[in-house]
Amino acid sequence: MKRAIMIDPEDTVATLLSDAEAGEPIYIVRADGKETKALKAREPISMGHKVALMSLKKGDKVMKYGAVIGQAIRHIREGDHVHVHNMKSLRLVIPLNASRIPK
């Protein structure tokens, strides 16, 4: 069973606690360990990376820890991997050459 942690009820992303394959169900748990819902990973997502809990429009805020961690730079669907390819900081933008995603 693949799990992802939703740290705050206001979060729009959850952090994977183990690697998930595309199409695999992910169970979303809260900080207290209670399961809230399940969704399907639309693509492979590594442990520690984020999955979208809902669909986000370009410009929507991305929430984790109950706080804004950046905004969507393109449309994001529920179950998508959320990372530097589809979100960015509102404060300091990471230079492009640093924004590599492991294959």
Binding site: T15, K64, G70, V82, H83, K88, I94, P95, R100
Partner: peptide, 18 residues
Amino acid sequence: MEFMCKGNIDGGLSSIEE
């Protein structure tokens, strides 16, 4: 300049806020 290292980003951190 890189203010977040490759390991941060490989490890899933997407922004300085996070």
